[in-house]
Simulated scan of single mutants.
Amino acid sequence: MKLIVAIFIAILCHCKVNGQSYKAAFKSDICNCIEEESLKRHLTENAYKTCFRETLPKYATQIDAEIVEEDINQKFYKGQLARKELIISLNYELIYSCDTYYNYLDRERTSKKLIARENAKESELERYNQMVALSPNAMAYYMRAQLQFYLGNIKEAEVDVNKSLEVNPNKDNVKSTRHELLLLAWIYEEQERYSEAIVLYDKIYLGDLDTEVARLRALADKKSGGTEPNMLIINKNTKSSERRIPDDKKRSRSSSRQIKDKAKTKEVKAKTKKKDTSSLRKLLKIGN
């Protein structure tokens, strides 16, 4: 009896280890693929997607094995979600474990900065000074901040971008100030103020498909000494002003809402399935 129990426990442990370790193996294989690609040609943005598509079939069975679902349609749907989450999360998680991938992204960002710096002209600064003097609004300060940054005037750029945020009438709207906050985060990184940059990236982050910010955050985190991915904090500072409603009206509204919700549930589920499958196909470029 004890032997049977011991065997059963061993099997459970083995399954648990396999379930937890396949993602690490997945990362390793994608990294190897990227390294091979880097030896053959200059890496491009599509290198990650290409290597993901090539590596996925090897782990498809393990991905589906972790999904406990009797309904075939639901199992397929959850399998699609799992693949979608993988392709999104590995986009930035690989930065911590794959030096080739990290170096490629960091080099591309540095190259972008140096090219912009090469094209930036000191003579244009006077024009932006006049623009700020004539119309000291958020856009004028932001454009001058951007030029100052590319000219290498980091402190002046920081002053201007903060002024841009200060006078922006929509400064509490993260989407409206996204460009300013991205620039400010970059300014912080230039000064090796990585923890401050990470706070801004967490604030800017819009959700799973915001891979640009997820990557930038991971790059800054690794430079600050981070060794493994941590969860991105989604900013939820949206304020809602709810009117106080009497309890009897609340109950009547609640019951009517329940009826409407039930009617919409099937439609929403169907649309969600189509949307997630479509998103995965776009990410993988299946069928092209």
Rank of each mutant, 00 (worst) to 15 (best):
I67R: 03
I11C: 04
I88L: 11
Y104Q: 00
N46Q: 14
Q80S: 10
N103D: 06
P57T: 07
D99R: 00
P57R: 02
R83H: 08
S21C: 12
L94S: 03
A82C: 08
R83Q: 12
A25K: 10
Y96N: 01
Q80I: 14
K40F: 05
I34F: 02
A6T: 13
L81H: 04
Y104N: 05
Y104W: 10
E54C: 01
E54R: 07
K49T: 10
N91M: 05
Q74E: 13
K16G: 12
S21N: 13
A82Q: 04
I88K: 05
T50S: 12
A47K: 02
S28Y: 10
L56E: 09
K78G: 03
D71E: 15
F52M: 01
Y92F: 15
D64P: 03
P57I: 07
Y48T: 01
F8E: 06
Y22S: 05
R53I: 05
C15I: 09
A82R: 01
N91K: 09
I4H: 07
I4D: 11
R83C: 06
C13D: 08
Y101R: 02
Y59A: 01
Y96Q: 05
N32S: 15
V5Q: 14
R83V: 13
I4F: 15
S97T: 15
Q74S: 13
K75H: 08
Y102T: 07
L43K: 02
T44F: 09
S38N: 11
A65I: 04
K23Q: 11
V68E: 14
E45G: 06
V68H: 15
A82I: 06
N103H: 11
I95R: 04
H14E: 12
L56M: 09
E66Y: 07
L86N: 02
F8K: 10
I11D: 06
V17A: 13
C15A: 11
I88Y: 10
D29T: 09
G79D: 11
F26E: 00
I63Q: 04
L81M: 12
T100Y: 02
R53K: 09
Y96G: 03
I87L: 06
E37V: 03
D29C: 02
E45W: 09
L81S: 04
K75V: 05
I7T: 12
E93C: 03
L56C: 05
I7F: 13
D99F: 01
C51L: 04
E36C: 08
C98I: 04
K78N: 10
D71N: 14
N73F: 15
L81Y: 04
K84A: 06
A6M: 12
I88M: 08
F52L: 07
E70L: 15
L94T: 01
T61A: 09
C51D: 02
K75T: 11
A65P: 06
Y101H: 03
K58N: 10
S28F: 15
N103I: 05
C51W: 01
E93Q: 13
E54T: 06
R83K: 11
F26Q: 01
A47Y: 02
I30F: 03
